[in-house]
Amino acid sequence: MTDDPATILLVEDDAATRTFLGDELTADGYEVFVADCLRDGLRLLETKFPDLVVCDVGLPDGSGLDLLRHVRSADRLAGRVDPRTPLLVLSGRCAETDRIRSFERGADDVVAKPFSYGELRCRMRALLRRCEGRSRSGVLRVGDLEVDPVARRVTLRGQVIALSQKEFALLRTLASEPLRVFTKDELLRTVWGFRSIPGTTRTLDSHACRLRGKLGAAGDLYVLNVWGVGYRLIDPPSVVAEDLAVAA
């Protein structure tokens, strides 16, 4: 594991609960991503690669149980989601049948509302501890470049490349389909979570430039700007087909 703070995805439609938990977890040293609906929860799940998910069941556009099913049915080798991601259900629907249904869909723990924040935090820590030793998988290989979403680790010809959280998320997205051109709007939405795109932001370009520099220190050419469109990781002739395989 790295020394980075654990990342928590909080999917909660109640604004007061969402704000309270976001503030408290951040104060306790976690990196927190929040969503108020199933759609945004699934999007963040596939782009932020959280260490743990805390999810309500009753969401305005669906059920949190669908998110649990999405995680547990994911392809751990080729997919964007690690099916072993710890899942904690935080819900006001906690009759015995509701708890059983959550566990059957893949929940690791269920906490009823109203809840004690101290107890919730301890349960989250316990889940994170139990998952620290899980084996690494889903490593993306593009030529000599390896991206490990679970460990949040990047190596180039065996040498570790230190990246910021956003640089890693950008690289992980590009590496998922290294020949495809991702538009700027698409990357700003998936990596930064923008719902509307500011017309003058240089956020993406500055991160892409720094990422290109870190990966290109030894002369390698990654993170290519397709003018007027967006970015891709490599040019089509740069690697042979087998280098694009996702390895266990």
Rank of each mutant, 00 (worst) to 15 (best):
P86F: 09
E119P: 07
S116K: 01
L90E: 04
C122T: 11
G143I: 06
E132S: 12
T85E: 06
G138F: 13
E119N: 14
G133I: 12
R125Q: 07
L120V: 12
G138A: 11
L128N: 02
L145S: 06
D98L: 07
S102G: 07
E104T: 15
C94E: 04
R93G: 13
L140F: 11
R101C: 09
L140Y: 11
I100M: 13
R93C: 13
R121P: 15
V139T: 04
A107Q: 03
L90G: 05
G106M: 02
V139S: 00
R136N: 15
T85R: 08
P114F: 06
V147D: 04
L128D: 00
I100S: 14
S137L: 12
V142D: 10
E119S: 09
E132F: 09
V142R: 13
V110R: 01
S135E: 14
G92N: 07
G133N: 13
E119D: 11
L88D: 04
L88F: 11
A151S: 04
L127P: 00
R134N: 01
L128M: 08
A112Q: 02
I100G: 07
R129V: 01
R141D: 11
C122E: 15
R136Q: 14
L90D: 03
E132Y: 05
R129L: 05
L120W: 07
G92Y: 06
F115Q: 10
K113Q: 02
C122K: 10
G133A: 11
G133D: 10
G138S: 14
D108T: 00
V139P: 03
P114L: 04
P86T: 04
R93M: 11
L140V: 12
L145V: 04
G106T: 00
S116R: 02
S91D: 13
S91V: 15
L127Y: 01
I100P: 09
R121Y: 12
L88C: 10
P149F: 03
L88Y: 09
V150G: 03
A112V: 03
R136C: 10
G143L: 12
D144S: 08
R125W: 00
G143W: 12
T85K: 05
F103A: 03
C122V: 08
S116E: 04
P149H: 00
C131Y: 14
E104C: 08
F103S: 04
E104M: 11
L127M: 04
V111S: 10
A112T: 03
G143R: 09
D98I: 03
G118N: 14
D144I: 02
E119I: 08
T97K: 06
R152F: 10
E96L: 10
F115P: 10
G138I: 14
A151K: 02
G118R: 13
R125K: 14
L127D: 00
A151R: 05
A107L: 06
D98M: 04
R136L: 09
G92P: 11
E119A: 09
R123T: 01
E104H: 09
D144F: 01
A151E: 05
T97Q: 13
D98K: 05
V139Y: 01
T85S: 07
V150D: 03
L145N: 03
